[in-house]
Amino acid sequence: MAKVNVQTQDFDIGAETAALTAGHTNIGGIGCFIGTVRAAPPDQRAITALTLEHYPAMTQRALEKIAAEAERRWSLLGCTVIHRHGRLELGANIVLVIAAAAHRQAALDAASFLIDWLKTKAPFWKQEHFLDGATTWVEAKSTDADAAARWSD
């Protein structure tokens, strides 16, 4: 059973990894992805922060379904998904996925799957804040849909 959290506060990657592996001696590999708030490229309007909006009644269940699908596809020995919401400054952590397995391929593939599906199937929306106080909603990228489609439904 995966650990799934939707929260405003930051997460501690070391503590989450330790919690996932505690009591297990058969884990041989841990795959991890951390998504963070990045600055805009120099030729674009400067971003100061993001606000992550979500659909509280749906988010937890949507993430649990994605984690359950990873556990169905790979023999995982642990799985953690944490997604933050609210205002997040440049460099802040947004999302953490961890998959633990006996061997590296399952751990890496499951972590990749988790973030690819999360990006197209979890009800979160990013709003960018600019230096002058203006805001805009981030548009979904077709490359994210392509990445999720690699894994098929």
Partner: peptide, 12 residues
């Protein structure tokens, strides 16, 4: 029913 309307999701 609870019906929600929203743009394509952009989390992660």
């Amino acid at each position: 029913d609870e019906i929600a309307f929203f743009p394509p999701v952009t989390g992660g």
